[in-house]
Design a protein around this nucleic acid. Structure first.
Length: 290
DNA sequence: ATGCCAAGAAAGTCTTGA
């Protein structure tokens, strides 16, 4: 909290001061919250720890841990000063929160469907020097192929999320909902938008559902700071997508009005994609004067 | 477009991802 920390953001959005200097809204308290789809905790333990040690986020929301809770290597993170809460399942999905501050009122699973057994949502409250923040980590369904039951599940899940997001606003707390949304919000969020027109990540119905959540009053962090095209958070392992910079931006942080007012920085740690044994996603983060 | 890469479960070669 409140300490200078290195920034890995080579997408640094051309704004803000380097080296962790204080932003204009910073009153001495700074909480960095990052989201990172790690694509398997077992395969990513080394790369994840290297990033944590360098980026030093106060809170890291992880998706696709692909692990049951009992097998999650929590000691790796506890040894680094993180509190750990997981919501996992066998083989697929699974989300986790790492936090240097205590995690209170932890809740697992997206409300609204008792039949849903997919581990895609976890939330907790973190208290900074001046504010308590409700932080939600989410892994939104991919939805392909379209049409089909997976796409129906995606749209139903997004409607459930919209309802829950509306309820969170009523608390008037700063709320951060961050994770892998599996949504390309606009054409400028893809290197080749024409390749995604029929895909569950970019179909008009998908974008509409995303926008309905935004329209409740949430701010998408990166787009609040820049309209620049070419900012991506995912590059496929196939067909040299990274080398060709054939990326898409699908990992997002949505902020309630109270949280948006606290944001001082936002960035994407793009260089993480070029390291050894990378995930296909990279971390996206914000700083809150919380 | 599909499944070029990767991960997991499991011991074949599926399934899933985006």
């Amino acid at each position: 909290m409140g300490v200078d920390r290195p920034s890995l953001a080579d997408d640094g959005l051309g704004k803000g001061a380097p080296g962790g200097q204080k932003g204009p809204n910073d009153r001495g308290a700074s909480m960095r919250i990052a989201t990172f789809n790690i694509n398997g905790i077992k395969a990513r333990a080394e790369a994840l720890c290297a990033w944590l040690d360098e980026a030093a986020p106060d809170v890291a929301l992880l998706q696709e841990i692909k692990s049951v809770d009992e097998n999650f290597p929590r000691e790796l993170f506890e040894d680094r000063g993180y509190n750990v809460e997981t919501h996992g399942q066998k083989s697929f999905n699974g989300v986790a929160i790492l936090s240097k501050l205590p995690l209170e009122d932890v809740s697992r699973g997206l409300p609204g469907d008792d039949e849903d057994e997919q581990a895609r949502w976890i939330e907790a409250t973190v208290t900074g020097d001046n504010h308590s923040v409700r932080i939600c980590g989410l892994y939104l369904p991919n939805g392909n192929p379209v049409p089909g039951p997976k796409y129906d599940y995606k749209l139903a899940w997004m409607e459930r999320m919209r309802r829950h997001a509306a309820g969170l606003l009523e608390t008037e707390m700063p709320v951060v909902m961050a994770g892998d949304y599996n949504i390309i919000p606009q054409d400028e969020d893809a290197a080749k938008p024409e390749a995604w027109t029929e895909d569950a990540l970019a179909l008009p119905q998908s974008r509409d559902a995303f926008r309905r959540i935004l329209n409740l009053g949430y701010t998408e962090a990166i787009r609040a700071r820049t309209a620049a095209p070419g900012l991506f958070s995912f590059w496929d392992y196939q067909a040299g997508a990274w080398q060709r910079n054939n990326g898409i931006r699908i990992d997002h942080l949505l902020l309630s009005p109270q949280a948006a007012d606290l944001m001082t920085e936002a960035g994407i740690d793009k260089d993480v994609r070029g390291r050894d044994k990378p995930s296909d996603h990279v971390p996206v983060w914000i700083d809150l004067a919380a």
